[in-house]
Amino acid sequence: MIRLEGVTKTYGEGPNRVEALRGVDLHIAPAEFVSIMGPSGSGKSTLLNLVSALDRPTGGKITIEGQDISTLTDDALTLFRRRRIGLIFQFFNLLPTLDALHNVLLPVMLEREARGEDVERARGLLEQVGLGKRTHHRIHQLSGGEMQRVALARALVLGPKLLLADEPTGNLDSHTGEAMLALLKGVRDQHGTTIVMVTHDRNAALVADRQVRVKDGTIVEDGAAARLAAGA
């Protein structure tokens, strides 16, 4: 599903040069739920940005679903993100000018005019995340947990094979956070979606099948939840 081979990422030049990732190799199988952990500045967000096709590596190769995304043009990369990847952010990042339903439909609307079946699918997803009765609510009328659920529905609307979540529980209380994680797991189980989640939260990380720990731009640990938990 995802393959990183010798991926490096550097920022700046000369004395300001920072090596965020140093030759990372990583393989994530289809329908795998992987969490990425690490302290601030470890390179985990850089890793997620590269896997999300938001950024290009300085060196190495990234292949997602057999497509080498390192060489794609900006437009191709954008379309790749739109069609193949679902993204969830810590701060939900919903558009306040749209209601819940249209926030969910946004990726579809970027692709084409939303059709009846798209609207039905969006409604279904909102129903699935427990917001069936809030479809026409404006964003400011929703709670944090509800907003993140709308964000999840948005990420899934085009049926991506890959879901990337950046601190999805970082802005939620523990109860709502747990519910969110359960939803993610449910998505993986139901649709076979590959999920990569960056998190600070050890408990959240343990929900995933596999944990990858990053430090100083390299992967320092990579293993099943139980082993890392035992090592902790």
């Binding site: 954008t78 379309l79 993100r81 739109r82 069609r83 993204l87 558009l95 946004l106 970027l110």
Partner: peptide
């Protein structure tokens, strides 16, 4: 940034 991330072209 979000719009670009979820697939809005330049």
């Amino acid at each position: 940034g979000v719009l670009r991330a979820i697939g809005m072209l330049r």
